[in-house]
Amino acid sequence: MKQISNEFSGTFICLDKSNVDTDQIIPKQFLKSIKKTGFGDNLFDGWRYLDEGTIDQETSSRMVNKDFIFNNKLFTDSNILVSGENFGCGSSREHAVWALKDFGIKTVIAESFADIFYNNCFKNGLLALCLKKSEISKIFENFNENSAQSIEIDLINQVLYYGDSEFKFELDDYKKKCLLEGLDEIGASLKFTDQIKSFEKNYQIKNPWLFK
């Protein structure tokens, strides 16, 4: 039975590029913040504005790049981003995921992801989902900047619905559980405290030079 996860479904934005790096997702000057929020206005800052952004700046005073899809009013409420291969490569900055989340993105769909970015998504309740090249191409080809379209995600059965198409996707059970139930990962790992302590004790006996 189809079980649509509303949170991860909705209108989508296409960014038809490969190797979108985390420096583009959130440029360095915004990494000086010591918080996890407040990055949404600077998501893709270098592409979204025609002037150089600084931290703590009012975005209303900036020159907007009207040609960039993230500034198209039809798409400002989108919660899905679709892009090409190796999305999120480069720097490990989790600020990239915080910026996507702040903007309202809940699902990132790509042909492939860089490892660190992929992990960072799930730690923040974002679904990162891989589709085949042919499936991504189909979405890109039918994308129209003049009308917003939707994608529905059935997280439980791991199916993506787009128009008449149904695409199956892979997702490990634990990550799925985290998204559906909002599991506390550190809390879950701390349940292994006894095992970690006993490992550490034996390990220290074998490798005393690693402990000071």
């Binding site: 490990d172 059970d173 292994f192 970690i196």
Partner: peptide
């Protein structure tokens, strides 16, 4: 250290 239910490891 340990294998978790989901196949990941500590």
């Amino acid at each position: 250290v340990a294998k978790r239910d989901d196949g990941s490891s500590l």
